[in-house]
Nucleic acid binder design. Structure first.
Length: 547
RNA sequence: AGCCAGGUGGUCAAGUGGUGAAGACAUCACGCUUUCAAUGUGAUAACACGAGUUCGAUUCUCGUUCUGGCUACCA
């Protein structure tokens, strides 16, 4: 009898679960190898939390010699976005997340367990749903939206658990003959699970991160096949992760409460259970309160934000790894230049509670990352960013390539490296005043400090030009600076000045400042000696002359 | 409202039945320095609350509270 019903519900399905079991055999992998996946909806957006999870999952698979694959969960037409798949693939590639199997672009997929796009797996889900109906474990439901609303209202009034279960599951109680009749009458339906659960009983499962968790059994007759013939997330999860032979289901924390349902589904389908790993949610500090970082309110929720703002991927990954395993920070300190892939992740050390995403800390991580780059690397990566996001700067960097590299190399070698670049967008402020185009053509105010009298300034600059020699080493150079200071009534040493402030007009620092400001328009710059050297005599004279 | 999970400085966090309760970021001070940055030294600052078990609880148990997640023909 159930067979008749099943055939009526899915008249075009002739494959059986056994067929698919054979088609997708168990994977031949070494001991401890983890098979896991990234399973996003193609919404045209990669959330930082997804990147966090994907970054962990891909590394976890990699460090166990396992498999990491991409599966597109496009069973909800409403959410879909054009080019969604490419956004995902390219967006993750930026962060070194790569897949062993799955779609590689819009039209092509690799791997033996495909298709990896759920909308292309319709018959597979239906074959499993059909077999469930045959076994009397699922049934067609004819309830309309209005009827479901009514049930919900009634439940709200009675202040009981909402949902389609027990006495509220009207279609569950219908006779098969009646179901068959209604289908033959052309009535619309969806397919529901006939849940055998008893909410007074508990189920337990062990989460790799959280340990043992106990829940009431699921008794909801949830929808498994929607009216468009596509499966719901839950059903697709069970079928796909089984058939694709996933060993570890790594996903966001928001799925924890569906686990009892998933356990039930796996059991009813006769599937072996995967290990569940529920990742903590990344949070955001919103005026003192904590909330999930949100796509709508927080630009930093998008993985693409970091590229746009010029934060190197290494920094983002370091920060994410930091949240993942707190011992990463120490490891990074000991191995400043190593690839982050050399770090071994311990899944059990992942913290259970969601971390607040701290952009300030990220900036610090990023400063250290960039401090480890050579001037050449800073130039290359900075230029790559500028080409896309700051064209004007890119042009200048290219026009003065050697000069720019020279500047970027200031205080970059040796043990105490300058750390004033946290993101490529800082580069403009670091460089622009040294380019003549900007210095002379863009308005800026000279930030004179203690010495503001124009005549004195002019005199100092004139005198300085007389003694300046590009070939001087730093000591000689600074001694000359002191000579000039003395000549104009400034102390040679700061300490000297501090002892007797009345006997001097100021100290050598004030004189240096005059030169610094005349040259750069700023009070604060990197090492003046180096800057002079990079500018060269011609530019120096030109800049002095303007005063 | 119900179910589930989690609360160690402002943030990320280590850790324990007896500790001066690590470390990093942030903040502040001082030192070095021609400015800034860097760096060095130091400082501020935490076991959510209440009971119970115990000689002793931040750690174990229970309750309270706060926070987060879920309660769709969305994922």
């Amino acid at each position: 009898m159930s067979k008749e019903l099943a055939n009526l519900v899915f008249p075009n399905i002739d494959k059986t679960p056994e067929y698919y079991e054979e088609l997708y055999p168990k994977r031949n992998l070494s001991d401890g190898a983890v098979v896991t996946r990234f399973a996003p909806s193609p919404t045209g957006f990669i959330h930082i939390g997804s990147l966090f999870t994907a970054n962990f999952a891909s590394r976890f698979a990699r460090q166990t010699n396992g498999v990491y694959y991409l599966r597109i969960e496009d069973t909800d037409g409403k959410r879909e976005v054009e080019d969604g798949i490419n956004v995902i693939i390219n967006g993750l590639k930026v962060f070194d997340v790569k897949f062993d199997e799955g779609p590689v672009d819009e039209n092509n997929q690799v791997g033996n367990y495909g298709p990896y796009i759920q909308s292309q797996r319709k018959e597979i889900y239906q074959a499993f749903a059909k077999s469930l109906i045959e076994k009397g474990l699922a049934y067609p439901c004819f309830c309309t939206e209005e009827e479901l609303d009514k049930i919900r209202e009634r439940q709200e009034k009675l202040k009981i658990r909402p949902g389609y279960y027990g006495e509220f599951a009207a279609c569950r109680k219908m006779s098969e003959a009646q179901m068959i009749e209604r289908i033959n009458n052309g009535e619309k339906f969806i397919v529901r699970l006939k849940s055998p659960g008893n909410p007074n009983k508990k189920v337990r499962y062990t989460d790799l991160i959280r340990g043992v968790i106990e829940f009431p059994e699921n008794d909801q007759d949830i929808v498994i096949i929607k009216s468009d013939g596509l499966p719901t997330y839950h059903f697709a999860h069970a079928v796909d992760d089984h058939l694709m032979r996933t060993t570890h289901v790594i996903r966001g924390e928001e799925w924890i409460s569906s686990v009892p349902l998933h356990l039930q589904l796996f059991e009813m389908l006769g599937f072996e259970l995967p290990t569940y790993v529920h990742m903590p949610t990344i949070m955001k500090d919103d005026n003192g309160s904590k909330r999930k970082i949100s796509k709508r309110k927080d630009p930093e929720a998008a993985a693409s934000y970091y590229k746009e703002n010029g934060i190197p991927k290494e920094a983002v990954l370091d920060y994410l790894l930091n949240i993942l395993n707190s011992n990463y920070e120490l490891w990074r300190k000991e191995n400043p230049k190593a690839s982050s892939f050399d770090f071994v992740i311990s899944p059990e050390k992942i913290s259970v509670s969601g971390a607040m995403f701290d952009l300030v800390k990220l900036a610090d991580v990023s400063k250290n990352t960039i401090a480890n780059f050579t001037a050449e690397e800073v130039y290359t990566q900075g230029l790559e960013w500028a080409e896309e996001f700051d064209k004007e700067l890119a042009e200048l960097m290219k026009k003065y390539e050697a000069f720019t590299k020279g500047i970027l190399n200031i205080e970059r070698t040796g043990t105490k490296v300058r750390k004033d670049i946290a993101k490529w967008s800082d580069l403009r402020d670091n460089l622009e005043y040294l380019y003549d185009e900007v210095f002379f053509e863009k308005e800026h105010e000279d930030e004179w400090q203690n010495v503001t009298d124009k005549e004195t300034i002019k005199a100092i600059l004139e005198e300085y030009l007389k003694v300046y020699d590009e070939n001087d080493d730093k000591d000689t150079w600074f001694n000359k600076m002191k000579d000039v200071s003395e000549k104009f009534g400034f102390a040679r040493e700061v300490k000297e000045y501090k002892k007797n402030p009345e006997s001097f007009k100021g100290h050598v620092g004030d004189v240096s400042t005059v030169i610094r400001v005349a040259l750069t328009g700023r009070r604060n710059t990197p090492d003046l000696y180096e800057i002079l050297k990079q500018l060269g005599r011609e530019r120096i004279v030109k800049r002095f002359e303007r005063i």
